[in-house]
Each structure stands twice: as C-alpha cells, then as structure tokens.
Design a protein around this nucleic acid. Sequence first.
DNA 1: TCACGCTGTCAACAACGTTGACAAACCTGG
DNA 2: CCAGGTTTGTCAACGTTGTTGACAGCGTGA
Lengths: 215, 215
Amino acid sequence: MARPAALSRERIVEAAAALASRDGAEQLTVRALGDELRCDPTALYRHFRNVEELHRAVGDHFLADVSVHPRPREGWRTAVRRLCVELRRAQLRQPKLAALVRSAPTRLGNELAITEALLRELQRGGFRTPSAVRAYHSLIELTVGSAAIDAALSAQPVVTREATYRSWRNDYAALDPERFPSIAAASGILYQGSADQRFEEALDVLLAGLVARRK
Amino acid sequence: MARPAALSRERIVEAAAALASRDGAEQLTVRALGDELRCDPTALYRHFRNVEELHRAVGDHFLADVSVHPRPREGWRTAVRRLCVELRRAQLRQPKLAALVRSAPTRLGNELAITEALLRELQRGGFRTPSAVRAYHSLIELTVGSAAIDAALSAQPVVTREATYRSWRNDYAALDPERFPSIAAASGILYQGSADQRFEEALDVLLAGLVARRK
DNA sequence: TCACGCTGTCAACAACGTTGACAAACCTGG
DNA sequence: CCAGGTTTGTCAACGTTGTTGACAGCGTGA
C-alpha cells in the first residue's frame, strides 16, 4: 500500500465520537478533530469525502447497541416494540450524537441492520411489503422524533428533570381558567410520569392502529 | 427617537420569512438578509442580539399561523388532525427554530392556545381528562418529533430534497440482497413520496388507535 | 442651538468546510 | 536493490459564515 497510515476510518470515528459526546455534536469540527487526533485537520479528507460522510459514520457508531438478531419465541409485535424501545434508548444514551442520525438515515451497517430487522418482523407479522414500509416509516417517525424531543431533558439528572416537569405543571396551573379551561383542568396530570412512559404509551397506540390497518 | 428608522424587528422578521420560504432556511444568512432588505447586513444587530434571537422571532411569527379557533361544522377528529398538521407545518417553516422549541414547551401565548385547542377538541370527542392528556402527549410526541426529523431536509429546496430521497433509494437498492433481503425488496418504495405524506399517514394511524382506546 | 442617542455603514476578525500543490513514506516490478 | 507509482499527511489558501468596534448621519429633548 503506502505510508505507515497513522489514521484510519475507525480511529477517526472513535476520536470523533469521543469528541462529540464530550463537547457536543456542534463542536465536532474538522479542526477540532485534527487537534483530537494530533494531526493536520485536512488529513481527514484522505478517509472521508466530506464532513457529512464522517457524520454518518459517527452517527452509525453508537447504533451498534441495538440488538437486531431474531430471538426464539419472540412474537413479531414484541420484537418490533423492543426494537423501537432499544433504538430510542440508544439515542437517548448519546443525545448529542443522535442529532447526527435523526435528520437523515445513515444507510450504514448498524442502521441498515435495524431497518432490516424492523421490516423483517413486520412482514412476519403479516404486513405485505408496501404496508410494511408505511408502518416502518410511522414507527421511525415516532421513535426517532420522540428521542429528539426528550434528548435534552434526558441529559439532566432525574431530580432536576422531575423539578422541570413540576415547574411546567405549576405554570399550567397558574393560567387563567377563563381563557384556558381545558389546560387548567388538566394541569395536575400534564407531563406527569416519565418521558419513557409517554413514548411507550404512544408506541402501543400506534402499534394497535397499525395492526387494525394491516394488509 | 432617532433617525428615519428604515428597519424594525417586524420588517426584518418579515423579510427573513420571505427569504427563508423562498430560498430555504439554509439560505437565511445575515448577508443574504442584508441583500433582501437593501441595507448593510450588520444593521440587523441593532435590532437583534444575534441570529439565534432572530430565529426565535421568526419562529414565533409562524407559530401564529396555526388557527386555534373552533370552526363551525368541524368534527373533533378533523380539528385535531388539522391542528397537528398546521403545528407541524409551522415548525417546518423555521427548521432552525425547531431545535429550540422541541425540547421544552414554551408555555407561552401561541403554544398555550394550541394546547388548549387540542385538549378542548379531544374532550369534545369523548375523551375524559386523563385520557385526553395521554392522547395529547402521544399526538405532540409524534407531531413535534416528526417535525424535528424533517426539519433539516425541509430546509432544502424541493428539487434538492427529491434528489436526496432518490439517492437514499439508490443506496438501499445497491445493497446485497442476501444480507438485507427485506430492504432490497422494499428499496423502490422506501422514502417515496413526501415527508408530509408519511407524517399524515402516521397521524391517521395514531388517531385510529386513540379512538379505539378512548374512554 | 447643540449635545446626546439611535441607526446604518464599513472594515475587519475568527471560525467553518474544502481544495490543490507538495513531500515523505511505503509497496512492487524490474 | 532500486526506481516508479501510490498512498497519506502537511501546508497555504479560498470563499463562506457570524460577529464586533469605530465611524458617520440624522432626529429629538434640553
């Protein structure tokens, strides 16, 4: 081949992931990555066509946590539900990196495996291809979207988060009941419970709706 | 006050809105805004602390577009669907703002009006308060989350966006059918149609699921 | 009238992604 | 064993972004 090759896609991706999860995805710049790797920033372009390609690789890196292999005695609906819950959990674990994968699918290894697993399970559940694809889109929309919403808050410690929810409910309760009667009546239970609960509730409702429209 | 005051927050926000909806939010730069207003780009800083404050103002401007007043002869389900679609549309008009709004409800004017309208319509549809709140959470999770996903792409002009979807489908089609049989079979219809269609499909499924669980 | 304050202009800075020319290091064909 | 070609990191530079500080023009209150 060529020269010692101090760099490699893997080494770059790992450095980028460390940098992004430490300083935030917005700090993941070509020059900062050069500092992190102790090499010239533009050396990156020997391994990636542009930053977008790098972002996709980094985004895919942490999706490896989702286990996509079929489990014996697991029904399709349980499998789909678990895949979505794990995908969400992986994104919430790395909220800063999740910003890289939610706007566009990476179309790389780990994400492809998740997509394949979801489509496979839906088909096993009796969805024919066009219907399975529509169901897949709906599930991803809810799962990834919900993770995007909750990313910021889930980064906070539990006590802080609970305090935040409480202050929201207080704000709702302080409203003029004449102008906002429905909010006032609901102020005690708005944003009660965890975001995980709210997501799984929505997921179950969506799944039920999908089953009813299955074809 | 002072000099003729050719500029104002309102005039700037309107010019920014026109620019963003014409050329895409990506093109909403300080210099482009200067061209649009026929003034020096930095004059903007006499009215806004920085671009982020401008983005918020533009976003607020569009949130007012969601019409929350009850319409005669409009069923609750139609109303809920419309509110969600309009809320999503409002957020997509200012993709850069979506990042600021989605993590936490602002609990201010326009957003409160939307919350109130959603809860009101759900109750009109036969949901009792606790059930209506859960339904509200699910709907917001999907609507705001979906907007967060699509924000980046909807910032691009239509032709670019279509080219992006096409290149995704090409990537899926180029995969090894042995390793990814389900994706290969679905590659022609993955990410076909618009993001709006996919969202409304998911919304309809969710609504159907909610109705089935109504109490 | 005149000084103050608001507002737009201008030049400049730092940081961003990206490119093309260059140089060093390795592999391979002769 | 060495010459040629390829790979890979370095360097300087370009065009773009947001932002700042000095300057100048204008209107109003003292």
